[in-house]
């Protein structure tokens, strides 16, 4: 594999035409699965692009951590999308989104308790059985921590692959934002994880908001990747080697060219890491 083969970008709807015209512009793309459940036109375009590029399906709506029953209709639609597009990876979040059938359209923080871990692992297992394949679970970006937590986020996350056989999606921007919002140490977090289970890395931008005396760092996916996140990425590559890596940009969407330029920065981080893995 060449460095370019590792780097992907998020395919967002305004960029469809660009990538339909030049589907080989990037090695692989990530899409938000739910955007392609119902829209036959978007799905047809995705299939055209998929014929020339790798694909990662990234879900936001399964609400894996919720006490509500799993949404069978949602899982069926995800399975159909996976059957149609044959993605390289499927991922979801360490979060919950619904209660009593009401969906909050957000990735809400879980309490890191033994009960929540057992519940979450059971649901990951059920989804993997339903899909007939492994999924990756992404570390969340949060602004609040539950006082009832008994485990750290990293211990909770690290337990999942062993319990379920799932992989991890390591979002280094979420990791960094979380460290600023909650004061934990990124190295401590990373050292807790079995990095062999990391199947994909996400890089994105964030914003800071002043709220009285509080400064909150918000995972907006609306800015270039910040320098400290690039540092985390290089450090991960140096220690653990290359992984498929996504430049994620969802708000204040730049031109495709600008997005691809950000992807080039990730490519530039890679050669040394690939050489080390090969040797």
């Amino acid at each position: 594999m060449t460095p370019n083969d590792y780097i992907g970008v998020g395919l967002r709807i305004p960029h469809h035409d660009y990538f339909l015209a030049d589907p080989g512009a990037i090695a692989w793309m990530e899409v938000h699965s739910e955007n392609y459940f119902e829209d036959a036109r978007l799905r047809a375009e995705l299939l055209q692009i998929r014929a020339h590029a790798g694909l990662s399906l990234h879900g936001t709506g399964l609400s894996l951590g919720s006490v509500d029953p799993l949404d069978l209709k949602h899982m069926r639609r995800l399975r159909k999308l996976a059957e149609d597009t044959d993605p390289d990876r499927i991922s979801e979040h360490l979060s919950w989104s619904s209660f009593n059938g009401q969906h909050f359209n957000d990735l809400l923080p879980l309490p890191y308790t033994e009960e929540a871990l057992t519940h979450f692992a059971k649901r990951v297992d059920q989804v993997q059985q339903f899909l007939g394949r492994q999924i990756l679970i992404e570390n969340p970006s949060t602004y609040l921590e539950a006082e009832v937590s008994q485990l750290t986020e990293w211990d909770f996350l690290a337990a999942l692959p062993a319990l379920t056989g799932c992989g991890l999606l390591l979002d280094l921007n979420n990791l960094y934002v979380g460290s600023l919002n909650h004061g934990y140490d990124c190295d401590t977090y990373l050292q807790a994880l079995d990095v062999q289970t990391v199947g994909e890395i996400h890089l994105a931008g964030f914003h800071m908001r002043e709220m009285g005396n509080d400064r909150v760092f918000i995972d907006t996916h609306g800015a270039p990747v910040a320098a400290p996140v690039w540092d985390l990425y290089r450090a991960f590559l140096d220690r653990h080697g290359a992984r498929p890596t996504l430049i994620e940009w969802d708000t204040d969407l730049p031109s495709p060219q600008r997005l691809l330029a950000e992807a080039d920065k990730a490519v530039a981080c890679l050669p040394l890491a690939i050489a080390e893995v090969s040797s």
Partner: peptide, 18 residues
């Protein structure tokens, strides 16, 4: 478990996003 001014402000981020 969120009963501090900082927590209430941060909860508003989630409320507003919703």
């Amino acid at each position: 478990m969120l009963d501090t001014e900082q927590a209430r402000n941060r909860l508003d981020i989630y409320r507003n996003h919703y």
